[in-house]
Design a protein around this nucleic acid. Structure first.
Lengths: 348, 348
DNA sequence: TAATTTTGTGGAAGCCCTTCCACGAAAACT
DNA sequence: AGTTTTCGTGGAAGGGCTTCCACAAAATTA
């Protein structure tokens, strides 16, 4: 069997405490002893048992990450950032990919209570109240990203500004007849993006045409789907030609892509007939040449992970709520009509 | 603090052994006692400590998954499949996303030795020999996916057949002047795909023009990158116009996309000037309308996870090497020139 | 030189479980 | 009736570590 600390102690002719101290970089071990222990440990291929260590130290060196699998696009980027931050402190990442928001609860219940992990990183979903209350009360280190709760640190993007930014961009392009295709209003981000849109329109004294402001019904993924985008666009195109907007703010890239497809199938062109903006800047947005609002997912992931580590060190630090400014990424779907964009040459 | 088994035993007026038995569904506990213990446990919100349990049972209920982040495209799909399989048995997934193949070694060294996990799932990378030997010797349950080693169970796609399939498809389309843009020959899959290409060409008695068979130099990701595809295409296009192939088998989608971009920038059209096939069927392949060879990643992930669980139950079961037949997905980049494909309408 | 402080070390106790052995009571047998 | 088997249970031992207290030896101070 694998050697234990006792084996090393015996071989190196020291006490077990000393071996432990060597492996924890405790200062009060003489250089000579330390070297001797290390030599024996290397020879015997000794590695401290993580579970035993965790049990004794009352920590696990692992955090639980809840990500929705269905937002597969940024989530890779996020995970990458999170992991690279965690690896600096040798902390494991236990992944719980949630395929349906309701599963989050089950997943939380089964895991996470006591000692399994030292902290939780929770992405893009609302944490069920039962757990939120429990965690807040027990001071379990929890950090939220792309979602919000007063009781926990949270990192999210300024959705209102994003909605405004997209709208203002279209206005600057000369559009005055602007509509919005939104996800379900059940989703806080969707509501915020809509608020930004309305605000920008009001600020520019442009008319808000309610029949141009369409939202998904509540449904899977709160309507952040290609199907939803396609359906909403179809609904919009049922309006008579002369009574359509010339530009649309869409509440997510994935919906925008659905909308673009519908547009294409109706023989309409983007941006010539209708300009479109997305939201998120997911990987394929660039390939669709989609103007969009970028969320700094990677940055948010890294900062959130770092924050979680701090909170694990000291659970009493005050809660912070940080918001990020989204960034407008201008591409072909909002090119000013007269100027021919270069996207024509970029096809496969 | 959180209640322990002792607290429950005291409250329920039973011994600790009994409490433990209740939580492990041990049969020899009377119904009455079981109920009483459960009632107390629920009231006190008791949950067994996973680390203590792991230490005592000598297992962790966790497996380590190594995935290359750089293949971000399928990896989401894989993880989803793996996790859904694991969740059936309440096993945790510790994720090690590798950003660079060399990191795998560091990651393996730090983790995985002894008790941290019960098994390892290793994707798409060659396992460093040092560990392979160690694991094989110690009978650590290891399952490989999209990579191969005689000492471990492995699940991978028939790359040779994939290469042949792509080539044969082009031949059926009427192409006779066919080349290949390959990743680095350091990579076994790259070599196998090339072998398939050569085989198909030989079978069809078509000439193999070595100057049309280009491979990436060894480098980052073994040349499975957009940059590599772009560079190889550029190199190919440096041939005089009349001396170019009319179709190219490319060893991965990501390279194919790079190649297509280069093609576009040179004012050439696909498939009219040069037809292209990819490999993998990553998410964006569909958006590029890329004909490709699909790997059943999700299926492989699920089967691999299941196999790992079996091996964890019984490490002595014989090693199996399963290969999957890849599937040809025909799209626009190999459309027969005369027939106008529908992809023209599908743009944004 | 004696008294004090510092340095390095050993190992018991404790972290929270599981598992096994022992044992009394009840049930099933002579 | 006594004897054997079964059932349900208690709790010690053990899993491999950390941490703290005690203590001897060495270094410092008076």
């Amino acid at each position: 069997m694998a050697p234990t600390i006792y084996d090393i102690a015996r071989e190196a002719k020291v006490g077990i405490g000393t071996v432990s101290r060597v492996f924890n970089n405790h200062p009060s071990v003489s250089d000579e002893t330390r070297k001797r222990v290390m030599r024996v440990a290397t020879r015997m291929n000794y590695h401290p048992h993580p579970l035993a260590r965790g049990l004794a130290q009352r920590r696990t060196n692992a955090i639980l990450v809840f990500v929705p699998f269905f937002t597969s696009f940024f989530f890779v980027e996020i995970l990458e950032a999170v992991q690279s931050t965690l690896s600096e402190v040798d902390c494991d990442l236990i992944l719980h990919g949630i395929t349906h928001p309701d599963h989050a609860e089950i997943s939380l219940r089964r895991n996470s209570f006591r000692g399994r992990v030292d902290g939780i990183l929770f992405f893009s979903m609302r944490m069920p109240e039962e757990f939120a209350a429990e965690y807040a009360h027990l001071r379990v280190p929890v950090v939220l990203v792309d979602t919000h709760d007063d009781r926990f640190d949270s990192f999210s993007v300024q959705n209102v500004h994003g909605g405004m930014g997209a709208t203002e961009h279209l206005i600057r392009q000369g559009h005055t007849r602007i509509g919005m295709l939104n996800a379900s209003l059940d989703s806080p981000p969707a509501r915020e993006r809509l608020a930004g849109f309305r605000q920008a329109m009001r600020d520019a004294r442009l008319p808000l045409r309610e029949e141009w402001i369409l939202s998904s019904p509540s449904g899977p993924l709160d309507g952040f789907t290609k199907q939803s985008g396609q359906a909403l666009m179809k609904q919009l195109l049922s309006l008579p030609r002369h009574d359509r907007p010339s530009a649309l703010v869409v509440s997510s890239d994935i919906q925008a892509i659905g909308a673009l497809q519908e547009l294409g199938q109706s023989g309409l062109r983007c941006p010539d007939d209708i300009a479109v903006t997305g939201f998120d800047d997911i990987e394929i947005a660039a390939h669709f040449n989609l103007t969009t609002i970028r969320q700094p997912m990677s940055e948010m992931g890294a900062l959130a992970a770092r924050r979680l580590l701090e909170r694990m060190k000291d659970p009493e630090i005050p809660v912070v709520q940080k918001t990020f400014e989204p960034e407008l990424i201008v591409r072909g779907t909002t090119a000013v009509p007269p100027v021919k964009s270069t996207r024509q040459s970029r096809r496969a």
